[in-house]
Design a protein around this nucleic acid. Sequence first.
DNA 1: GCATGATGTTGACATCATCTACATCCAAGT
DNA 2: ACTTGGATGTAGATGATGTCAACATCATGC
Lengths: 198, 198
Amino acid sequence: MPSSPVPSSIARLRGKGGRYHHGNLRGALIVAAAGLLETEGEAGLTLRALADRAGVSRAAPYRHFADKEALLATLAGEGFRVLDREMERAAAMETTAPGRLRAMARAYVAFAQRYHRMFRLMFAGAADPEGRGSGQLRRRLSDAVAGMGSATDGMTAMTAWSLIHGLAALALDSPVVAEAARAPNVDGVVDLLIGGIG
Amino acid sequence: MPSSPVPSSIARLRGKGGRYHHGNLRGALIVAAAGLLETEGEAGLTLRALADRAGVSRAAPYRHFADKEALLATLAGEGFRVLDREMERAAAMETTAPGRLRAMARAYVAFAQRYHRMFRLMFAGAADPEGRGSGQLRRRLSDAVAGMGSATDGMTAMTAWSLIHGLAALALDSPVVAEAARAPNVDGVVDLLIGGIG
DNA sequence: GCATGATGTTGACATCATCTACATCCAAGT
DNA sequence: ACTTGGATGTAGATGATGTCAACATCATGC
């Protein structure tokens, strides 16, 4: 028998059939964080709320993340992975190079609007740990642009990315830009650039 | 004689020739906030540090701002005003319409890099109180675009703003884009769009 | 069986935003 | 001059939060 009695919270867990060890706390924390971020906003994304939602003590997350910032960075990295997948899927359904670029732009903007807090987090400056996120995005867009016109160099790809990202970002703040970011209009915006390339 | 003795901090102020009333605390807080934001980062931008820097108690800022968010919103509004002024000045030195658009783009990107934390704050979602900031920006860019080609409607202006904003924002995160955002290269990026317009 | 590292828990701390009650100053009436 | 009321500032407390150190529990290989 240990010198101190079994803590009440553990007894409670046992009573509910819970286990002392969570099993996959790291993953559960990321999922809970994504959920909290969208429902409660970044202010509501607190380590305590996270731990509660995962049914775990307040200090437990520190076994998996050095600090809150590390958790947010990982979360942002996850966001980049999802965005990349959605762009890939959107492009796969198109047959022409300009069609692919337009589809990727629509997916980018749609992602920003559906998960707008996540989108903000991703570009808030906390680099994701593997640094992979934005690099992979850039490469995917570069490839799409490269398959287009003749005079398509790196600068052209940066221009395309800037245009798409700016449209997605500004649409979150300005209702006027949001109108230009509606799916049918995105094509028109991208076409202005395509005209400049070809 | 009041029931409680004169607080030590006031005595200290008196001793240093300070006054009980600050004079222009509201303005001093905004200046201090702008300074702290750039030197310490958003995490270091705390009401305590602000009050200390202004030589005033911790609760004093609440006489001028409802809460921290209101202060940040005002600060962001100030940022918009500065950015607008810099764009205006940059455009005034140019004689042609494309030249003005290019100059404004360079000013926009330069502002984002010089005051990158302020730039992030401005587009972090906390709308500035008068809502004037981003609207004025949009109008100025719309005017610049309107003075250009034949087929320049609202959509064109949104496209221009998106391109410029995206370039400025991405350059803060990605070294690759930062290269495309160096002053000489900004012109090239904008020209890609101008080619699409004309 | 049993040591040992990984995983969770508890309790405490410092910092922060914010509130309440009070003090001080300034300016307008009188 | 004197008072009086509103604007401005202060002190102290409160609750929430991120983080840490010491301890408990589990799972796994020897």
